[in-house]
Design a protein around this nucleic acid. Sequence first.
RNA 1: GCCUAGGUGGUGGAACUGGUAGACACGCAGGACUUAAAAUCCUGUUCGCCUUAAAGCGAGUGCGGGUUCGAUUCCCGCCCUAGGUACCA
Length: 928
Amino acid sequence: MDYQFKTIEKKWQQFWASNQTFKVNNTSDKPKYYVLDMFPYPSGAGLHVGHPLGYIASDVFSRYKRLRGFNVLHPMGYDSFGLPAEQYAIQTGQHPAITTETNIRRYREQLDNIGFSFDWSREIRTSDPLYYKWTQWIFMQLFNSFYNIASDKAESIDRLIDIFENEGSKGVKAVGDEDALEFTADEWNRFSEQQKESELLKYRLAYLRESAVNWCPALGTVLANDEVKDGVSERGGYPVIQKKMMQWSMRITAYAERLLQGLDTIDWPEPLVEMQRNWIGKSVGASVKFALANQPSESIEVFTTRVDTIYGVSFLVLAPEHELVSFITTNEQRAAVDSYIEQTKKKSERDRMADTKTVTGVFTGGYALHPLTGKQVPIWIADYVLAGYGTGAVMAVPSGDQRDYLFAKQFNLPIIKILDIQEIDKEADNRKEGLYINSEFINGLSYEEAVSKLIAVLEERGVGKAKINYRMRDAIFGRQRYWGEPVPVYFKDGLPKLVQASELPLLLPEVDKYLPTESGEPPLGRATDWKYQGVYEYELSTMPGWAGSSWYWYRYMDAHNEEAFASKEAVNYWQAVDLYIGGSEHATGHLLYSRFWNKFLKDIGKVNEEEPFKKLINQGMIQGRSNFVYRLLDEEGGGTNTFVSFGLKDQYKTIALHVDVNIVNNDVLSLDKFKQSRPEYAQAEFILEDDKYVCGHEVEKMSKSKFNVVNPDDIIEQYGADTLRMYEMFLGPLEQSKPWNTNGIEGVHKFLRKFWRLFHHANTDFSISNDAPTKAELKSLHKIIRKVEDDIERFSFNTSVSSFMICVNELTDLKCNKRDILQDLVIVLSPYAPHICEELWTLLGNEAGSLSYASYPAFNPAYLVEDEFEYPISFNGKMRTKVKLSLSLEGKEIEEAVLTNEDVQRYLDGSTPKKVIVVKGKIVNIVI
RNA sequence: GCCUAGGUGGUGGAACUGGUAGACACGCAGGACUUAAAAUCCUGUUCGCCUUAAAGCGAGUGCGGGUUCGAUUCCCGCCCUAGGUACCA
């Protein structure tokens, strides 16, 4: 019989499902192993060929671990809250829950087609009320907790209240807002409920704070950075400005040091660890207060890592959003300052950071007093200073900082040399060498001496202190959206209160439209009769996408528990994730938030592990090839409904927008399909070239928002799941990103057919021999046993596939059909190509389904020993020859080998080599 | 801009710790089998030069330098691409 992949794959997928082959118990004699994938967002575009890359790798690993005798937890679920379903709802009116359900069904079908060994009885969905009940529950614990610096962990807010009541604010060292008050116990006890609550909010791990957002006045909504392109909204092309808004935040900064320390304890790729380290951005320095010249009771606090350069300060720069800007600005400068602030509002934070070439800024007219010299220092504002980093103000030292240097040159501000070795004619000199000059009491000191002396003096005078600053900011937790977890909070007398735990889940209410209200409130403001106890306003924002994904791996341990997010027993059994596979694009988002929530859950005694993911592998992204259309802009820079073809776009002012690759063929856009794709495009007009609309293209992340998704079902239809699985592994190193292409899939498919033919005599009947294997056959088998073992342990799946091809070619050449060889080969290949292997396994006379728990064959090095081995050496890097050596691959040291200098000399016509270079026991070069 | 990674034939990639660069595939070219097609098998395939052939010579791992007997691998400086950059997930 021929290799009928369709029949075989359907058969075994049904068998696995109906026999629940991969259902796993929370008790077992075997050691446990938890393999987790980053669960997908069920996008309307369906599962794309990029998702399975990681899933196949984790499936190969899971199946391998089962063969190695582990009780493997390998679950799957859906991160099903998110923006795209909501945008679809806005366009069509269809409830996101329906869209999501449809998408999940499609994902499940697609996943099933690939033949994964997931335990589907543990499936989870973050948008399921039975799931988000526990996301809300965790939020409540965070709201009810503060971070106690003394015990270095989160503790109940009741304990903080206790301390305040008995000892006042001095009794506790806790992580809190900058503007937290100081008070005695008596003062606290005299506070009104209102005052107490608002003070406690400054310590809660989930708290309200004002923060900046992208506001689109025309759409009346907040936009993600992704939805803003070149200062206008991607949808509609309306202007976007920065606006401040009261929002829920998470005090992740309280965990900064633990998040940093924990990185040393986990087995993650070093680049990823480095990214998190840099994101946390610990810097050791000092904070210094500069009093205002005309109002010495007010001061501007700056953070600096180079307090030693303080005598080089020639001006201060504030972020345009800094709260004191308006107060400082003089009447003469007010117009200029206001107009600069207006300009800044139009820029996104990223644009502000990216632009280092143009130097802009405005003098406020105000002065501060240098804390040591008392001299007047002018105060400027500039958009390169960000309100969210440090204190939103910097002391500018042009001689030591290039950015300050350029600023000083541009605006003719003094540049003060502070170290004797500094060379500052052309640029700033940030060296910490030499001795200080122009610096009063630190003159003549070295860097280390200066820093400690300065800090001592600043502290003594109460104008500064040593400080550790983290670049990481608290995470904004509110979203002005519909399709997310409702925040289980209502407002009484303007203060946030939690709903009762017994009232969870707080269900997402129905709304008539998924848009903001006319008064600019989030979509939940549209819900009618949605009041706590019929009276109090609920919080109208919902949780961000990362809420549900920050703890989900615990839910898989005990997916149907109604009493807890997971039972104590389940958590104790599975502990942490042993292997987590997912993309590095989550490096500073999901992977940081998850660590944060995990540490919090540990602090409150709900889980055991400080770190949730012991080992992590980044699967590289399979990138997509995106297509673009070019929207014509009007004079004000607003979007029109006319689109310019790629070749003509440079003649107009346009903005590039992603267009679905599925309505583009060879970069030519289908105009009809484009008009149907969105209501706003129905009347679209086009400027064509050669009667065609040609799209631009780019290689980038495959994602629903970029409309460049390719479906794995098409590949499976043509070649089968086993081919897809092996091909994705064959494409290249797991960690490496690569654009999707199907060149080369034929080779993998041919391999599987060849493999099948090893068992099928004359391409028809199943026929194998019970004869004893030959030496050559055993060698071939044991090479692959060892190779696959090695490759899987170091996640080098692509080289495995090549080795399989070599192995099968060798066995084909040997006309091998020996049971002993083939049976072991089936086991070794089965993690990669499970369907064909299950089929052959049963044909070999084994019980159906038993392959998944067979034993991985033992490697025997004896089969690889060779009597004679031809070893090439090169002379002077030019002449090459081959020398016959007696040595073995395994065991014997080369020093014992027959080759000696005398032997080598024979190949050099008697000339004596000057040098023989031996590396790892091999002669690699001979210098004559 | 900043952080992280990558750049090797026509293509995907291999070379694991500095030691024969191009394994294994795809594609392409030629051939076998076939009435034909599919499937399968065989040969060749980094580029250039030279040769009837066998063989040989030179260059070559993004670019420019450096270290080394020896560099895809290590160091310095560039260029390009991708991911992240805090409301995509």
